[in-house]
Design a protein around this nucleic acid. Structure first.
Lengths: 189, 189
DNA sequence: GTCTATAGAAAGATAGAC
DNA sequence: GTCTATCTTTCTATAGAC
């Protein structure tokens, strides 16, 4: 049946979108399958026809959450802002709040140490894509690639945001984000 | 009774040491009070005469875990190695494994976003101490303080290690740690 | 202070009706 | 495909014996 097939795909997407939001906001352990399904307008029992386990959903959610941000930062796509602008948005107090923007690399960093292979693989692939994107920006800017510099930029962005979220002091967090921003724009590029 | 008082203090310390180890290795949600007490050679029921809640234990554990590393890196103490050596140890695959060395700032970063005030305050205090220590090293080296540079160093160390632990790819993780090391030693200090 | 026993709640996963 | 109901496990926290 073409119709029910299509309906199933749409339902799956709704579950995945709900999961991406809830997981990045609260982490794996503080989101139940119940929460995800309710957020998607369904109930518990319907879950396992779409995903085989909570971990599988989590792995796919990380990729889904990354793609939401990814297509806004890929320099191969049209109308993507310059690196300077991307960095500023990434290292913002807005992103730290996590209401409108949530990079899974920064929001779920230490969460990964407790997860299984499939989840960690998803995170690793997303990280490689992130570094690769930074590398393309750098190459457009300077004419040559430099993986090491791209990794340093990635750490300064992801690490800076992750730590700022851990701090229970808005002033300090803001100073920290500013320091990271300065490191990324002041240095000899 | 002086004897039972002293015994209680020693028991408390044993619980705290066990907690510091288990929590930094596995995070808040994957360590039960049962695990901590068993590791300390006791049973569940004895816990609540020493701590009022799991969160209180967690907060104190973070400080305890930090002090284990702290006194080895404080430039005011005698026989503390130079910054270059500290950075190398911090950004090592050994530290990434977490068997002998575990900085709570890097091991528990995103875990903090789900915790209550007392826990987040403990983390924040430890982070301030970390940055302060780096600042003293920098001042000894260059003759002047630079908080922004110290924060950047902290992010490169903590963030680099945290991300390397999230990656499910030893080669990539090693490259990442090397990149962070290079950023901290190559730059114009 | 430390023990065993248990209350009470939450959550992953499954069974079976519709 | 989605629902309600349930099995099973896990864990914080407390009660009461010694």
């Amino acid at each position: 049946m073409a119709w029910s097939q299509e309906h199933k795909i749409k339902t799956r997407q709704k579950i995945l979108n709900s999961a991406a939001q809830l997981f990045t906001q609260n982490g794996f352990d503080h989101v139940g399958i119940n929460d995800v399904m309710r957020h998607a307008g369904l109930t518990r029992g319907a879950f396992y026809t779409h995903f085989s386990s909570k971990a599988e959903l989590y792995a796919e959610s990380i990729v889904a959450a990354a793609m939401e941000i990814g297509h806004r930062t890929d320099p191969d796509h049209p109308d993507v802002p310059p690196l300077e602008s991307i960095i500023k948005t990434y290292l913002s107090m807005e992103h730290r709040k996590g209401e409108t923007l949530r990079c899974p690399l920064a929001f779920l960093t230490t969460d990964m140490t407790q997860r299984d292979e499939q989840v960690r693989n998803a995170y690793t692939r997303v990280f490689k894509g992130f570094v690769n994107n930074l590398g393309k920006h750098l190459e457009q800017q300077n004419g040559y690639a430099d993986t090491q510099k791209s990794m340093q930029q990635a750490v300064m962005m992801i690490g800076g945001l992750a730590i700022s979220r851990a701090l229970n002091d808005d002033t300090l967090a803001s100073e920290l984000l500013d320091s990271c921003h300065a490191a990324l724009t002041t240095q000899s590029n």
